[in-house]
């Protein structure tokens, strides 16, 4: 079951210049290179003053991206599925701080509401007036993938639906500090601390597509996977898509993963997390990027001239690992 991407939108720590034919990204300098905060858009384009003032950044970037993805879309939305790894950490901190400072008295209900993981998908339903299916997945490194798998099941039940599927995550200074001090995300081999990032990406998905339309052709999820499991998984995914590694134009992954992949040296690799930082739903950025590359036949220049512009990009493989979770996604034409 291929999930056709009818439209998409993204907010990340990279600047995005995009029109119909061209597509470039740019690095924006960050105060602390270990913290890759998103470039916040002019929220007023889609959000009311009240929402902008009272919401967590996680909610704002998620809402903005979701609404941008639905801009000029006439199809009726059949459901909304959101993945988030961390949810609203900023407002969890704010409510905890207030609870401690005011000794549990006269606390702000908005801080509590805004700290709910599920607020974003509920909010999208209100702003898109979508009364259909609505769910939030919060499962670390496969939160976005869980949403995609759910979409697959939805389409098996009803092919005619359009589903808005996406992910959002945020970091805070304290969150980064806690993660670094506890070694929560340390790579086991090198004991290195990755730069942390945040972002949001949404896509309008449909089971119906024509030849040449771009979509997510395969999804594989793993828990406590060995390198062998992942290598076998890649073989299965390629077989399912009726192709070999030679048909894969680009591999979006990390340097660490590349080292144990049997196809790691054979396919041209782009280490996207070096640019956006690590976060649980970073694969939503990767899918958005892959779709854009296939659509424009062009890899943004910030990733290096070596990728250049090919006559065609047909298949882009995404291999990810986040703590005990791993996933393989194939975006293809």
């Amino acid at each position: 079951m291929k999930l056709y991407i009818k439209n998409s939108a993204c907010i990340s720590s990279l600047g995005i210049q995009q029109n119909e034919n061209s597509f470039e990204l740019e690095t924006i300098s960050q105060e602390d290179p270990k913290k890759r905060y998103v470039i916040e858009p002019d929220y007023k384009e889609f959000l009311s003053f009240n929402v902008i003032r009272r919401s967590a950044r996680y909610v704002k970037v998620g809402l903005f991206t979701a609404l941008k993805c639905m801009q000029n879309i006439e199809h009726t939305l059949g459901g909304i599925i959101v993945g988030t790894g961390v949810g609203s950490f900023s407002y969890t901190e704010k409510f905890l701080d207030e609870m401690n400072a005011k000794n549990e008295e006269k606390l702000s209900p908005n801080l509590f509401l805004q700290s709910m993981n599920s607020l974003l998908s509920g909010y999208i339903s209100i702003l898109t007036k979508c009364t259909g299916y609505n769910l939030t997945y919060v499962n670390r490194g496969i939160s976005f993938e869980s949403a995609l798998l759910d979409a697959q099941a939805q389409f098996l039940e009803d092919r005619s639906r359009y589903l808005l599927v996406g992910a959002a995550d945020e970091i805070t200074d304290n969150y980064v500090d806690i993660v670094h001090k506890t070694g929560y995300l340390n790579s086991s081999e090198k004991n290195t601390l990755p730069a942390l990032g945040e972002g949001a990406a949404f896509m309008l998905l449909s089971a119906e597509g024509r030849k040449g339309d771009i979509g997510i052709a395969a999804i594989r999820l793993f828990f406590e996977a060995t390198p062998e499991d992942i290598n076998t998984g890649i073989e299965e995914v390629l077989e399912e898509a009726n192709c070999t590694y030679r048909d894969v134009d680009l591999l979006l992954t990390t340097r660490e993963i590349q080292q144990f992949l049997t196809v790691g040296e054979k396919i041209s690799c782009l280490f996207y997390k070096d640019y956006i930082g690590e976060y649980p739903t970073a694969t939503s950025f990767a899918v958005w990027l892959a779709e854009k590359i296939v659509a424009t036949k062009h890899v943004p220049e910030i990733f290096g001239k070596r990728f250049g512009t090919k006559k065609e990009f047909r298949n882009i493989l995404i291999v990810n690992q986040y703590k005990k979770n791993a996933s393989i996604l194939l975006v293809s034409k």
């Binding site: 599920s118 919060v138 869980s146 828990f223």
Partner: peptide, 16 residues
């Protein structure tokens, strides 16, 4: 270990 995921839809979470 074949598949696990977690839902959070506030007070309807486990029904979902």
């Amino acid at each position: 270990k074949d598949y696990h995921t977690t839902i959070n839809t506030a007070c309807s979470s486990s029904s979902n």
